[in-house]
């Protein structure tokens, strides 16, 4: 089987978020990483390939973004993806991103397409679902386990209060979340060396429509501050939660 992992290039999760005139995310000093859920998806894909080389022919990573996301794609190649694709498009709208991915996938034949459940920048949680609908193929969301067992793809989906085990018919989109892999894989020195010679194909963007438009950013209002209660007076805390905050 061929696996495609969709990766997004996002600011490091510890980034202090700032904006220029409410309109532009200030990228000064920002470290860029593979979106954490996408990184877990990639890690799981590589784990499966390492465990059963015969089942996985190739792992491709794909990103919709501008040239500055290439170092993130290279990192994915260093971790263990076989080749990379970048669609040169300044992503602003989730549908437009899903459309770019779909246009690429239509021409290829990947059995398993993996997406992280959301990206840590715009928190949309939509690209995987939209992509599968554009392609007209099944999607399984909230996936916390994926494996290939005797040629069948078995996934587990988190549901309210439990878990379902599902046999997915390929091709399909697995929208993955925490649990899919334990720790993201760290690139080895050899991985970093070989990543330089792996193929990174750059494609021009496909013409698309957009459904939504960004207007401006706002920062949350600062908190009023924490009311400290003496450790010897725990009763006072419960009293305040009851009478002042009115939450218990």
């Amino acid at each position: 089987m061929k696996i495609l992992v969709c990766i997004n290039n996002v600011p490091d999760t510890t980034t202090k978020v700032k904006f220029i005139d409410k309109k532009v995310f200030d990228t000064a000093g920002v470290q860029w990483i593979i979106n954490p859920w996408d990184e877990l998806a990639l890690t799981r894909a590589i784990e499966i390939k390492e465990a059963q080389a015969a089942s996985v022919e190739k792992i491709t990573v794909i990103n919709v973004g501008l040239a500055d996301s290439e170092s993130t794609i290279r990192k994915a190649l260093a971790i263990g993806a076989d080749d990379g694709v970048r669609i040169n498009y300044d992503a602003k709208d989730s549908y437009a991103v899903a459309f770019q991915l779909a246009e690429y996938i239509k021409k290829e034949n990947y059995e398993i397409i993996m997406c992280g459940t959301e990206s840590s920048d715009y928190n949309g949680a939509v690209v995987g679902g939209m992509l599968s609908e554009i392609l007209g193929i099944p999607s399984v969301s909230s996936v916390s386990f994926l494996d290939i067992v005797e040629g069948k793809v078995i996934v587990k989906r988190e549901i309210d209060g439990g878990q379902e085990t599902i046999e997915a018919h390929t091709p399909f989109v697995a929208i993955v979340q925490k649990g899919i892999a334990n720790e993201p894989k760290i690139p080895s020195m050899r991985g970093i060396m070989t990543s330089r010679s792996k193929q990174l194909q750059v494609l021009e963007a496909f013409p698309t429509e957009v459904f939504t438009e960004f207007v401006e950013y706002e920062l949350p209002k600062p908190k009023a501050g924490c009311k400290k209660i003496d450790a010897e007076n725990v009763k006072e805390l419960i009293h305040l939660l009851h009478t002042e905050a009115k939450v218990i």
Binding site: E118, G128, S141, S142
Partner: peptide
């Protein structure tokens, strides 16, 4: 709702109905 169910269905419905979706 912006939860597992909403995330599973709303994006597909958005494409199906050509309807813009804002989540969260």
């Amino acid at each position: 709702a912006h939860n597992n169910t909403g995330k599973a269905i709303a994006p597909r419905l958005s494409v199906r109905l050509k309807a813009g979706l804002v989540t969260a």
